[in-house]
Amino acid sequence: MNLKHLISMRDLSRADIHQILDTASSFKDVLKRDIKKVPALRGKTVVNLFYEPSTRTRTSFEIAEKRLSTDVVNFAVSSSSVTKGESLFDTIKNIEAYGVDFVVVRHASSGVPNFIAEHMDVSVINAGDGMNEHPTQALLDAFTIRDHKGSFEGLEVAIVGDIIHSRVARSDMIGLLMLGSQVRFVGPPTLLPPQPPPGVRMYYSLEEGLTGVDVIIMLRIQMERMNKSFFPTTADYFSHWGLTKERLARARKDAIVMHPGPMNRGIEISSDVADGPQNVILQQVTNGLAVRMSVLYHLSGGEYHA
């Protein structure tokens, strides 16, 4: 794999994805050892540049980076000179002058990771840009699906809820279609795109959308991105679109329930499903570490062809 940045799932081929997942499965073994650290990226430095509040993704990246022996610097926006008015360009030029190897970036605007990759001589990993993409989430979702289902071909995957505001939905869709799964978007018309993207079917009823699916990916209702009213009240949303035990029964008996977190219990998902036997939500968290280690490992290559 000859890859410098991971900004979009479109940067990857199907073979690349499988290679990242295969390597991640070896890293998952490393995470079970007493000594959970390997020297693979010793001497490299990563800056986690988070312009949006994030606890779990940033923590996940930070642990993954530390397990690979990189030096980690966290650059959180609220405590940085950005609040003093520094432009993105000046910030990244400063970070470049420190001589770092990786920038893991999250930003509320789509396209910021591309901008950094253009202006900075580092490997850029997109940890979520606006409503655009979140490729490491898509890879950890794929890893979790492969873990349970063995393969992707012919699987019916329902992505449910706040699709238009979701970079997770977009990256999942690109990845899963590339891997050969069938993808459905399920949600109220206000939260779905006006036209279905190529290869995707849309369902405006949760009951219909869940019928016969193998995988359910629930999305968080993103209040912070809603500048107008998309549904009456959260209670009303739950009564129509919340994943409950009764609605889950529409899916295949061995269907798995996923959620990228953080969950809004009682809004998009009920507690008996979130904690139920079909949920794999905490496995996603563990798999996220292994997948992010794998991405860092594959992006850290030098110039020499072995």
């Binding site: 295969d22 070896s26 490393v30 490992y297």
Partner: peptide, 18 residues
């Protein structure tokens, strides 16, 4: 993951099971 030429190689080797 313990090789001393990782930072030199462009294509990283497949990590097999330990």
């Amino acid at each position: 993951l313990y090789r001393d030429d990782l930072s030199l190689r462009r294509d990283h080797p497949v990590v097999r099971k330990t």
